[in-house]
C-alpha cells in the first residue's frame, strides 16, 4: 500500500443509487482522510443524504464500492457498520424520546462493552464491569454536553438544541472512528452554532475522530472543514479547501442556480 492509501479512512468509488428513474447519486468517488473534517454540500436533492444513508447502511447501493479502513462495507447491515466504527446523527433527531437522557447514552455505550449471553443472564462480574464502563462513558459525555444536571429528564422533554447535542453525544457513545453529522446546526442560533463548531473541533483532537458533515450553513462549513465536496444532482461538481470552493465559479453557478429555482 502507498502512503496515500493508508491515510484514507473512508473511500467510495463508482457509488450509484437510483430511486425509480431519479439518479440520486452517480459514480461518486470520495476519499476521506484520517482525522480530517470533511464537508459535503449541495442544493436540496443533490445526493447528500443518499450518500449518508449508503455509507451507514440505511439503504443499499445499486453499484459501487465503499471501503472503511481498507475493508469493504457496502451493503452491510446498519448495526454492523456502527460496530465497525461509523456513527451518525440524523437531520432532525431520532432520540429514544421516552427514555432518560442518561439512558439514551447508556443504550449506545453498551456497544463498546459487549457482554455475552451467559454473563448477561447470570450477572457475572464481567457484566458488572461492562455496566460500570458504560456508566463512566455516559457520565463523561453528559459532562461534555453540559447536561449532567438533566441526566434523569426525558430526552423528548429537552429543548431542541439540547436534543441535538444529546444525539451527537449518543453517536459518540458508540465509540466511533468516523462521525457523520447530518445538518448538525439546523435550527440552532449563532451562539449555539459557534459552540457546536468548537465542540466538533475539540472532539476531533480528543477522540482522534474523523468527521463528515452535511450542512446548509455555509459559514459553519467554511470555518469547520479541511476539505469540502460539492454535489449537484447526484454528481460531483468540485472538491477542495473551503477557500477554493468559495472561489470556484462552478460552485457559485450551482448555488445561484438553486437559488433561482427556489425563487421561481
Amino acid at each position: 500500500m502507498t502512503g496515500a492509501d493508508t491515510d484514507a479512512l473512508l473511500v467510495t468509488s463508482g457509488l450509484t443509487r437510483t430511486f425509480g428513474r431519479l439518479v440520486a447519486l452517480r459514480n461518486l468517488a470520495i476519499t476521506v482522510r484520517r482525522n480530517e473534517i470533511f464537508g459535503v454540500i449541495g442544493p436540496n436533492g443533490s445526493g447528500k443524504s443518499t450518500f449518508f444513508n449508503l455509507v451507514t447502511g440505511f439503504i443499499r447501493a445499486d453499484a459501487g464500492e465503499i471501503t472503511f479502513d481498507g475493508a469493504p462495507i457496502a451493503n452491510l447491515p446498519a448495526t454492523e457498520i456502527v460496530r465497525r466504527g461509523i456513527a451518525r446523527t440524523f437531520q432532525g433527531t431520532r432520540l429514544f424520546r421516552g427514555l432518560s437522557v442518561r439512558d439514551n447514552l447508556l443504550a449506545a455505550a453498551a456497544l463498546r462493552s459487549p457482554v455475552n449471553w451467559w454473563d448477561g443472564l447470570l450477572g457475572t462480574p464481567v457484566l458488572a464491569r461492562a455496566e460500570a464502563a458504560s456508566g463512566r462513558r455516559a457520565d463523561e459525555l453528559l459532562a461534555m454536553i453540559s447536561l449532567t444536571a438533566r441526566a434523569d429528564a426525558k430526552a423528548g422533554d429537552l429543548p431542541y438544541g439540547d436534543q441535538r447535542r444529546l444525539e451527537l453525544a449518543r453517536a459518540l457513545a458508540t465509540g466511533p472512528r468516523l462521525l457523520m453529522l447530518d445538518e448538525p446546526a439546523a435550527g440552532m442560533d449563532a451562539a449555539e452554532t459557534k459552540a457546536l463548531l468548537d465542540l466538533i473541533k475539540d472532539l476531533r483532537k480528543r477522540e482522534n475522530l474523523t468527521v463528515i458533515v452535511v450542512e446548509h450553513d455555509m459559514e459553519l462549513i467554511m470555518n469547520l472543514c479541511d476539505r469540502v465536496h460539492v454535489l449537484a444532482q447526484g454528481e460531483t461538481v468540485f472538491e477542495g479547501t473551503p477557500a477554493e470552493v468559495q472561489a470556484h465559479p462552478k460552485v457559485r453557478d450551482v448555488y445561484l442556480g438553486a437559488d433561482e429555482e427556489a425563487a421561481a
Binding site: P77, V82, R94, F96, L99, D103, L106, A107, A108, L111
Partner: peptide, 18 residues
C-alpha cells in the same frame, strides 16, 4: 434498557449498535 430503546425506535436502536 435495550428493549425499552428498541420499543421507542427500532431504527435508532439499530444505529446505536444494539
Amino acid at each position: 434498557l435495550g428493549m425499552r430503546a428498541a420499543a421507542e425506535d427500532l431504527g435508532a436502536a439499530n444505529i446505536v449498535g444494539l
